[in-house]
Amino acid sequence: MLVFTIRRIVMMIPVLIGASLLAFVLVSVSGDPVADQVFILEQSTGEPVPQETVDNIKERLYYDRSLPERYWLWLTGIGETNGDIGLLQGEWGPSIEGSAIDVGEEIGSRFWITLRLVLFATVASIAIAILTGVVSAVKQYSKVDYLLTFIGFLALSMPTFWFGLLMKEAAVQTNNAIGSTFFQTYRDSTRGFHGNGWEVFLDAIPYLIIPTIVLMLTGYAAMSRYQRASMLEVLNSDYVRLARAKGVRNGTVMRRHALRTALIPVATFAPLGLATAMGGSLVIERIFGWRGLGAFAYDAITHNDAFAVLGYLFISGVIVLIGILISDLMYGVLDPRIRYE
């Protein structure tokens, strides 16, 4: 098991490097932060920017190097003495905002805010999707099945941001009606709140409820469809029929024989749900005024802050890969035929 885990982690390194290279190229070809900075300077001073300043900006952002060289520097930092670039050395590259923002520090301080939202939403949506998928399959072509299928399709077709705005306004209405602010619809935690881990967690709950429900939407929709399909397939299979013929009790057939096998496709799909939720956090944090990674990515994109965007892409790639690792390990628990030798 341990050997397997280590081997999987080692195999993920090339994927992560490949993803970072592709992301680097895509971000680099789609925008030029130097030209943007020069434009902003021109707007604020009202006169053309001297070539010297342009060169300084280029040098500071490493845009005086070629693309492959810049990528190498960003990844390793080898051959550079400035000490502000090179992931291997724990440096995330200079932000366009200069020394005001340290990309690594920003990501570190915002990481947990987003992670707890994404994890809560993913785990909750998987749990509800498994439940409704199984109910739907067991009661195939019943009213319940049709209703759940329709809800699934509706969730699949509803844009997260629209649902989020609706829920936010609904929460505000509810707060007004009951005359209290139970649902917090702005910011991720109480301003200036200090306490130990447990108190911080309790403080965050009212802020988390509505955004978690909203973020659950997309993951739930696709996953419940998968769960229904795979449960149906298992229920129609010979070994389940055999188990019933043997006289195994219905509950046991469902739990021990059917559900366990039916969970395998969903385990494959779960990391993808994590990836969608990471993307969805961009929308959620924009709507609810959070200061997490999603908001960080949004600001970085709108300011064309290349190294900040890349930092975000890197960290979310790591999160998704960890999700894939967990789902690989889940296979072994669900499918006893898989051996980790």
Binding site: V27, A275, G280, V283, V309
Partner: peptide, 14 residues
């Protein structure tokens, strides 16, 4: 590899 890159963020950046 492309699946690992968060779709919404990279398209937004582009």
């Amino acid at each position: 590899i492309l699946f690992v890159i968060p779709f919404l963020v990279i398209t937004a950046a582009m």
